[in-house]
């Protein structure tokens, strides 16, 4: 069976297949909720399919109309889904994972910088190692490797190891060639942390002054499951001021990062979703690094593990208690 047939086959057992379909032009894809076999013919799953579909799962599973729900997932998305399963926010028996070997996801800002004419393109497609763009009566070849999102560049896991399939979860694999693994680690964060605290504070003040408080970072985050009950929108108690202040905007980012400590899988959706290009993911990255150092834990790797901040040890191995 080819990938389309595999997906149609899956859809026979599910009420919906969350996938990606055509976006507003040939360079963009948009989430597609495939319910009929012919919807599957529209699926786009190359580098243009950038969104994590995991964020749709918790609310969708609450809908009484849905039967089983199948979802297309890159390995990084599987980590988010695993984290949701760990917290029992979605039911494993109603989930079908359709995993694709990952070629990486485009960073649209990089594409636009390399080829400004792409904004009014006529056609765009992947050909081997290149993204081909036809615009303005010309053709551009952009090397895919140089056009990927920062999260993809460092991703050490473009192919999902069998051991990472969540326990008890039906998992179907699609055919395809994965990109070469990245080095993992926190190189970009480490470089940023070499700045002095004063420089970092100035950086964030400048970046957050552009924040428009649209909360796309929050709503695109698969692990932000409070949805309509977020502390940021609470009127009573009224935690965040309505004043357009950098400190309140940054306070929300700190709340977001703290709430995600030990839960963030580093998928990069918050940074990608930000319309103003603020690298809000850096804050979560720092949390992830601390959690890794303190607890030896990376979120979403093992469906049987308990995230460290959702439990406790009487004596934590790497935390020195006061006076000891």
């Amino acid at each position: 069976m080819n990938n389309t047939e595999i997906m149609k086959n899956v859809l026979e057992r599910a009420s919906v297949l969350l996938a990606w379909g055509p976006g507003h032009d040939a360079l963009h894809a948009s989430p597609l909720f495939a319910r009929k076999a012919h919807d599957v013919d529209k699926v786009v799953m190359d580098v243009r399919a950038v969104q994590s579909l995991a964020a749709y799962l918790p609310p969708l599973f609450q809908s009484e109309k849905e039967g089983r729900i199948a979802v297309l997932a890159r390995p990084c998305h599987v980590r988010s889904i695993t984290a949701l399963l760990q917290e029992e926010l979605i039911p494993v028996e109603r989930l079908i994972l359709v995993v694709l070997p990952c070629q990486g996801k485009l960073d649209m800002a990089k594409v636009m910088a390399a080829c400004p004419a792409a904004e009014s393109l006529d056609a765009a497609f992947v050909d081997g190692d290149n993204l081909v763009i036809n615009a303005d009566g010309r053709q551009w070849l952009l090397r895919l490797e140089t056009m990927l999102s920062p999260a993809c560049v460092r991703c050490p896991m473009p192919e999902l190891p069998d051991a990472m399939i969540p326990e008890g979860c039906e998992c179907v694999r699609l055919d395809g060639q994965a990109r070469r693994p990245g080095e993992g680690g926190y190189a970009a964060l480490d470089a940023f942390m070499e700045k002095t605290p004063q420089e970092r504070w100035e950086f964030w003040k400048q970046e957050m002054s552009r924040c428009i408080r649209c909360y796309a970072c929050r709503n695109a985050c698969p692990m932000c499951v409070c949805r309509d009950h977020c502390v940021a929108s609470a009127r009573d108690p009224h935690w965040l001021s309505e004043l357009d202040s950098v400190t309140d905007k940054l306070l929300f980012q700190v709340i977001h990062a703290t709430h995600l400590a030990g839960r963030c899988t580093g998928c990069g959706e918050c940074t990608r979703a930000c319309p103003m290009g603020i690298p809000v993911g850096l804050l979560k990255m720092q949390m992830n690094k601390i959690v890794e150092e303190l607890f030896g834990y990376k979120a979403g790797m093992d469906s049987k593990a308990t995230p460290p901040l959702l439990t406790f040890e009487a004596i934590e191995k790497n935390i020195r208690e006061k006076g000891k």
């Binding site: 989430p31 909720f33 749709y56 408080r213 649209c214 796309a216 709503n219 695109a220 979703a273």
Partner: peptide, 16 residues
């Protein structure tokens, strides 16, 4: 519902 299915209900659209 079909139109709104992919919407994340953030405020990018209204704020820009």
């Amino acid at each position: 519902e079909t139109i709104g299915e992919p919407c994340l209900a953030c405020g990018v659209c209204t704020h820009l």
